[in-house]
Amino acid sequence: MKQCLVVDDSRVIRKVARRILEELAFEIDEAADGQEALNRCKKSMPDAILLDWNMPVMNGIDFLRRLRNEPGGTIPIVVFCTTENDLEHISEAMLAGANEYVMKPFDGDIIQAKFMEVGLL
């Protein structure tokens, strides 16, 4: 079973994402900010990370840059999932090492399509 870390400061979003991803046969772990996510990854790298941008403590883009510099940090496939929906943010995310990008609001079809796009399904 593939593992996916869902990183979002909204408990509701985490719950929705968990439900969608569990249906796609992922084992889910959750983190409420970038720092918490980084601590999880240092212990064990997941196969996939669904990543919000705007979060307290450490935001998504800072987390991603730190992650990609960690040993084994290039392993997880990172799919951004954020309300930021302009080309500048998308480009910045892709340059920082994201693999795909979801613009909120999302649904099960979008998550499935994007995860297929990056070979997770």
Partner: peptide, 20 residues
């Protein structure tokens, strides 16, 4: 719509072939 461009279109293609 934002919904339509997220079904089947890789983000790299959105960046290359679309503008907001």
């Amino acid at each position: 719509s934002q919904f339509e461009v997220q079904r089947g279109l890789p983000i790299t293609h959105l960046m290359k072939y679309f503008s907001k």
